[in-house]
Nucleic acid binder design. Sequence first.
RNA 1: GCGGAUGUGGCGGAACUGGCAGACGCGCUAGACUUAGGAUCUAGUGGGAGACCGUGCAGGUUCAAUUCCUGUCAUCCGCACCA
Length: 804
Amino acid sequence: MGVPYNHREIELKWRNEWEKNPVNVDDGKKQKYYCLDMFPYPSGNGLHVGHWRGYVISDVWSRYKLLNGHYIIHPMGWDAFGLPAENYAIKMGVHPAKSTAENVSNIKKQINEIAALYDWDMEVNTTDPDFYKWTQWIFVKMFKQGLAYEKQMPINWCPSCKTGLANEEVVDGKCERCGEEVTKKNLKQWMLKITEYADRLLDDLDKLDWPEKVKKMQTDWIGKSYGAEVDFKVNGREETITVYTTRPDTLYGATFMVLAPEHTMALSLATDDKKAEVEKYIYDASMKSNVDRLQDKEKTGVFTGSYAVNPLNGALVPIWLSDYVLADYGTGAIMCVPAHDDRDFEFATKFNIPIIQVIAKDGVAIENMTQAYTEAVGTMINSGEWNGMESSYLKKEGPAMIENMGIGKKTTNYKLRDWVFSRQRYWGEPIPIIHCEHCGCVPVPEDQLPLLLPEVESYQPTGTGESPLADIEEWVNTTCPVCGAPAKRETNTMPQWAGSSWYFLRYVDSHNKEELVNKEKAHNLLPVDMYIGGVEHAVLHLLYSRFYTKFLYDIGVVDFEEPFVKLFNQGMITGKNGIKMSKSKGNVVSPDDLVRDYGCDSLRMYELFVGPPELDSEWDDRGIEGVYRFLSRFWNLVLDNVDKNTEPTQEMIRLRHKMIHDITYRLENFSLNTVVSGFMEFNNKMIEMNKAGGIDKETLETAIILLAPFTPHLSEELWRTLGHQTSVFQNVWPVYDEKMMEETEKEVAVQINGKTKMVIKVAADISKEEAVKAGKEALGDKLTGELVKEIYVPGRIINIVAKQ
RNA sequence: GCGGAUGUGGCGGAACUGGCAGACGCGCUAGACUUAGGAUCUAGUGGGAGACCGUGCAGGUUCAAUUCCUGUCAUCCGCACCA
């Protein structure tokens, strides 16, 4: 024993064999299982050990399902349009099409080292015209349904990437990609009406077997709230100002009103003596960047000189302007109740505005409030005919009451905004729209798709808000498909998310020239059963994909409303001290050397062994030695038993069943790190048993099959070495028998007052009386004092409670 | 500020519905085999001489707490004036 196994030879051998005779075949009878990885964008940096992790997890899961009798759909493709690919191309000074193709071929080579079950016949690439034809087709369908529309508005603009961004792409006021501070730019943009799906996107989260964290992030992003719009008359004028509130119960406590500086009435409300001050405030607010506005902790504001009339009690409330009110949420105006809202309290305190408490906390009014009481719990006071009512009741019923009184209406609001869908960049799908002077926006006829992205000399972003495509006159100038008059093409391109929002549907029918996906195939092979990837897409890709799928369901392309039944987010692999692996930090660990030195199987297993798959883990190369030693020991154990015909002992049979049980249980619970440690434990026990003569074949074969999803090459080699002519993956996952796992004798801890004194062996089926008696005997003199209580937990603990 | 996750030896981590804390692995120590060993094998490895003490910290419930409850600290992540 003790010779390290030759991983290079056997891995090459079985890789070739599997290519000739695939182990995963659709015989039309097996149930499908679709296990999907989030497809990568083909970066020039190649893969590091962190990328491997997700792919290993998904492949282990796929092979486990394969051994459970499923036909596995396990595809891979390339998210190759978009900013990262384009920025890389610009940096390297090559055309993105060229660099993308090179990167794809390099990464594909690296991915093949994982030896995953990928079906390359399904491969898709979002930059392939046969693929983006359908990305464009979906857009045309959305346009025809009124879900894609053009709008002139100030949007998020990244000055470094020189393009507009969706709200989802702005993180802390900065560009999600490059970290540059995002500014506003007034541009005519294509928008997708994702808001029309807000309720379905929210409600259907309940159906999903997803991490609660991701569901919550999407729930918060959609940000649904219930409340009322209340109309306040402007004192002495005809107009009314409508405010939105979720706290109608506090209406009597409104002592002022605040409008966003961008509100259409902001300037007109200013009385003559306030005009200059108001104008200045509005101007200053318009000059502030997003980040400035976020960072200003101190509230600012200006009084317009006008008053509004509280519709309930006729009280006059001063109207202020302040940038803490957002123009694009609700009505851009709020009623302010300083006694029951933190922000209003801060503002009122600063500007000496009266504070009227309307909810009695614990039944009493608070003297000299030092902070707002924001809970809707308590009895109403200072509230006219509402006095004595419950705040929580009014919060809920208030909107309907307000509507009945004719002073407003109940309403629902969302934080979710429509999706800014155009990018002023070259490397994306051209938006298939033609602008005609007579007919307006006309979609490119479906039979003329794909609208090819033209070849171009200069693809660098212009920064003017125009796409580089705008310079290609022969492409821009076209004729209107409806009236035939000269017309111009839309020159913006789609965001990177366009292709990734539906690519998983295309895999199952990637060569179809006639349809996005064949109906029957879609019905039989979709949706995705298990989706594995990082958590960074919680509200971007995953929300967009759900939206696209719901749309495609609505137009009859697919017959399900949710794309991903189950989602698993794997943790990140970081370098030392939890620092993210990156080329600039110089802490990137490449899998290539590790595969060369220890083999694919060892690395696969070590990727799982580093820690719980859902948590981040620090990478430490040294640990892989341990996995390699374990595999070598198992290898030698099997070889040592090839010619022996050991009869199974009770002990071996028990170990076999327990091994099947433990490995299966941990695998089902996705506790993949403990699956690996479990294998090591069982292997150590088998090595001990082997010293007494040998191990029976059935136990060894069982271990080989259980290991197969993790170490496919090693398992295949050992399986054949034991004389089998067919692949190890032709087996079915072993089953255990609960009864066969039971031990006749158990080691039990003997405690006094919960403190372990010793361990004794007792029969597994011993009675409480006998166990306690055995325990007392074993303790002997150690047991003193008055006996109070005796506890026996079968097979675990004998605890004698004694008072000293 | 709000919400969530995490906190266990020198290190990564284990402990099922409360039941022998530290499995498994790395590292380390000693030994064996060796011309040699960064190979392999064997033994040991939380602290303490000891009764005992030990799962971020302080309490509580219990015969028994890493696990349940209350409070608190630290780190990481998400949201961030959404009325």
